[in-house]
Design a protein around this nucleic acid. Structure first.
Length: 557
DNA sequence: AGTTTCATATGG
DNA sequence: CTCGCCATATGAAACT
């Protein structure tokens, strides 16, 4: 039993349970449930599902049980209806199937529906292609897929009862319940963030682009600075034309100049003594900016002062989020200048520092490492404790241990880490051994890694698998901590005008009226404090948040 | 011509 | 005897 169970929160609450199924044209069916998942009364069909949900949300503080948050929630948000809690059957099903090593099997809803109708069990649908805002009715398409016969509410009810029973069967049911609640809360937050969008100042974005790239070309061709650079690169090679974006062209041109290179990577080119080398590095950097986050990107993804990516909660095997289209989780630092709060509003930016080594300290139960993780700078504490004050060496060793590095400059530091923190060392070693031997590992709350691909495994593949499982136990648990932070922030913001607008692995951004900024910053800090207790109970490991209140994302520390 | 893989960048 | 984890996105190169 973990301490989280004692904390009033998600896993044991008195929320009214209501199963919901969407019908056609905004209608739907509701079914009250007892705490054990059995029906309470008869299902009720309503013509206006959004209105019915809003009414019960106000009255009850309900937990909504539905098939898929990304399918059902956005239409409610467009009607201005926000819900506090849900149970997402598809996300939960994926967690449960994974727990039993049964990846790739059909979703519960589809399987139950098929069985009730005597139909063959359908395969999972292929993921949708990225759809920029305004260019396609992706949500309508999802609704079409879900337009089930009227008894679909019975499928929802049956699937929920089935999942409750299976959750109760897992070894650490309390932790797993928390995982399910957090995953579902994350799905709500993802839909809300996609709905609200990230404040995007087109003029500021334009200023960044013009400063770095020069004037845009009217026809949409390469901007002035790129054209100039390309000419100077040609000159530097004595007039021979080449495409600086083509690794083969670049290698050939240097070869003709008597310089043989292993690759055209930036760090290789930086060490080359030739006038073209720095020009190519600059060209490649600017070219990426132009193609990935330039003017045409903005035309495609930014509308009405908001960048609205489609977040995919649980889209990564480790539990981290993915996005479909727009590259929301890879916004270059320079482009963050374009993320600006509305007039009279601010951005509250919170970043969890050194999250993964702190997670290792907590899950491994290594007292000496936990003591280092009780400080504000874990690497500095490590350096004092075991690395003769060399903070850089401490950091390299810690990262190497978590990623499975075995060679290179880090070897002596790794040995020092093993000697001083044997309990933590053994924790990641055990995870690696399990993976190398073909076994599965789990996060702290019970998310299970996917099995290795089929076929015979070479020694190299087994070691790669070991590095994956070694890292999984940490990365997946860090993702759980971040979900707990996100869910806590979301709950605390419900009473304010502020909105969650961005979430990137270990960082959240809240868009808040300026006069609520202090209150929001305090709420974020409180959520951070609670996240650690919720997962790990009474540990001395701290998970400090760096909180900034800024107008512009680029100004956050 | 369309699809897949490679190389290289971005983020954590 | 190579060997550091998880991703997305782009264009070039290779493939069907």
């Amino acid at each position: 039993m973990i301490a989280g169970v004692r904390v009033s929160g998600w896993e044991h609450n008195s929320a009214v349970l209501i199963a919901v199924a969407a019908g056609e044209q905004g209608s739907g069916t509701l079914q009250r449930l007892h705490a054990d998942g059995t029906p309470a009364g008869r299902p009720e069909t309503v013509g206006d599902l959004a209105a019915a949900v809003a009414a019960r949300e106000r009255a009850d503080g309900s937990r909504w049980i539905w098939s898929s948050t990304p399918a059902l929630y956005p239409p409610l948000l467009r009607r201005g209806v926000r819900v506090a809690r849900c149970h997402d059957l598809q996300l939960t099903e994926a967690l449960l199937l994974g727990y039993h090593g049964r990846w790739g099997e059909p979703r519960a809803l589809a399987a139950i529906h098929a069985r009730r109708h005597g139909l063959p069990v359908p395969a999972d649908p292929a993921p949708a292609d990225p759809v920029p805002p305004g260019s396609g009715p992706i949500q309508a398409a999802l609704f079409d897929d879900l337009a089930e016969p009227p008894e679909e509410i019975a499928v929802v009810v049956e699937a929920y009862a089935d999942q409750l029973a299976r959750i109760a069967d897992v070894a650490e049911a309390g932790r797993f319940r928390l995982l399910v609640a957090l995953e579902s809360a994350g799905a709500l937050a993802a839909a809300e963030m996609g709905h609200h969008g990230l404040p995007w100042d087109a003029a500021a974005h334009d200023a960044v682009l013009r400063e770095l790239l020069g004037e845009p070309t009217p026809g949409g061709g390469p901007p002035r600075r790129l054209v100039e650079l390309r000419e100077r690169i040609t000159e530097a090679f004595g007039g021979a034309r080449l495409n600086p974006e083509s690794p083969a062209d670049v290698l050939r041109a240097f070869s003709r100049a008597g310089i043989v290179l292993p690759s055209t990577r930036a760090h290789v080119l930086r060490g080359v003594d030739h006038p073209a080398a720095p020009l190519i590095v600059e060209y490649k950097e600017l070219y990426r900016l132009w193609t990935s986050h330039g003017w045409s990107w903005r035309a495609q993804w930014v509308r009405d002062g908001r960048f609205r990516p489609e977040y995919v909660a649980g889209g990564v095997v480790s539990g981290r989020w993915a996005t479909r289209g727009g590259g929301a989780l890879q916004i270059p630092k320079a482009v963050r200048r374009a993320v600006v709060a509305d007039p009279g509003w601010t951005l509250v930016v919170a970043d969890a520092g050194q999250l993964e080594p702190r997670v290792l300290a907590a899950v491994a139960g290594d007292g000496r490492l936990a003591a280092a993780a009780a400080t504000g700078d874990l690497y500095a504490a490590l350096a004092t404790d075991a690395f003769g004050g060399d903070r850089a060496a401490a950091k390299v060793a810690m990262l190497g241990a978590m990623y499975g590095q075995t060679g290179g400059d880090a070897v002596p530091a790794l040995a020092a880490l093993q000697a001083k923190y044997p309990v933590a060392w053994e924790y990641v070693q055990a995870a690696a051994r399990t993976g190398e031997g073909g076994g599965l590992v789990r996060s702290w709350l019970g998310r299970t890694c996917p099995p290795a691909g089929g076929g015979p495994t070479s020694g190299a593949q087994a070691r790669a698998r070991g590095r994956f499982t070694r890292n999984f136990v940490i990365q997946a648990t860090a993702a759980e901590w971040a979900l707990a932070l996100l869910a806590g922030v979301r709950t605390r913001l419900a009473a304010t005008s502020a909105q969650l607008v961005f979430f990137q692995h270990d960082e959240v951004v809240v868009h808040a009226p300026a006069d609520e900024a202090d209150e929001v910053a305090e709420a974020v800090r409180a959520a951070g404090e609670q996240a650690g207790r919720l997962l790990f109970g009474d540990t001395q490991v701290r998970f400090p948040l760096d909180v900034s209140v800024v107008r512009c994302y680029a100004d956050a520390k």
